[in-house]
Amino acid sequence: MSQDRRMLFWRRARQEMAFLVFRLAVLVVLGALGGILLYVLIQGAGAISWEFLTAAPRDSMTKGGIFPALMGTLYLTLGAVLVALPLGVAAAVYLSEYATEGRVLRLVRLGIANLAGVPSVVFGLFGLALFVGYFKLGISLAAGSLTLGLLILPTVIGAAEEALRQVPGTFREASLGLGATRWQTIRKVVLPAALPGILTGSILGVGRAAGETAPIMFTAATFFTLRLPSSPLDQVMALPYHIYVLATAGTHIAQTRPLQYGTVLVLISLVLGLSLIAIVIRSRMRRHKKW
C-alpha cells in the first residue's frame, strides 16, 4: 500500500517537473519578445518627436526625420491591400460558398498553401522579373504594391474564408428559401454578415505587408528621396528598408544609431499596433458572436 502511494508520489512529481519545463519554455519565448520590445522602446523613445515623424532626412541622413519612409510604407501597404483584398475575398467566396470536394478544390488548396510558403525574397525576384522587367513598371510604387499584394494574398484568403464560414448556414437557407439565387444570397446576406471578420482578418495581412523588406528591395524601394511619390511609377522610401540602409550601408552608422532605434520603434508600433487591434477584435468576435 505504501509502495503504491510512493509510486503515485513519483508519478505526480514527474508531471510537475515536466510542466515546469513547459512553463520555462513559455517564459523564454515571452521574455525574448518582451525584452526586444522593451529595449527598442527605451532606446528609441528619445528619438521620437514631431519633427522625426514629419520631416525628411537631412545631412546625409544623420539628422531629420523619416516622413518620406513613413508615407512610402503607407502607400505601399495601401496598394498591397487594394490588390489582395478583392482577389482574396473572391477566392474565399469560392472556397466557402461554391467549392465542392474534388480535384479543383484540391488544386486550389495546393496553390494557396504553397503560395503561402514561397520565401519573401523569391517574391522579390518574381516582382522584379514580372512587374519591373516584363510589364516595364520599373522600380516603382506600383511594382512593389503588386508584389506585396500577391505576398499577402494567402493571409487574406485565410482570414476571409474563416469569416465566411462563421456565417451560419441558416442565413443562407433562409435567403435561398425566399427564392434568392445563390449570388444574391452571397451578395446580400453572406458577405455583409462576414464583412467585419474579413476586414479584421485582413489587418493581419496589412501588418505583414508593412513590415516586409525583401520583396520591395528590388521592386519599389529607394534609399533616399526627398519628395513623396506623385505617380504610381515613382520610387518610394519605406520604413523597413530605411532601417536596413541606416544600419548597414550608411557612412555614419554609429552617429545615426538613435535615428535607427527611433525608426524601428515607429515600424514596430505600426505593425504590432495593427496586429494587436486585429487580434483583440477577432477574439472578441469569436467570444460574443451575434448569432
Binding site: V29, L30, A32, L33, I36, Y39, V40, S120, L204, G207, R208, A210, G211, E212, T213, A214, P240, Y241, I243, Y244, A247, T248, R257, Q260, V264, L267, I268, V271, L272, S275, L276, I279, V280, S283
Partner: peptide, 20 residues
C-alpha cells in the same frame, strides 16, 4: 495573442536587434 504578436514582428527588426 502574445505568441501571435511574436509572429508579426517584422524580420528587419529581428535582424536589427541581432546585429546591433
Amino acid at each position: 495573442p502574445a505568441v501571435e504578436l511574436l509572429a508579426s514582428l517584422p524580420s528587419v527588426v529581428l535582424g536589427f536587434v541581432g546585429m546591433v
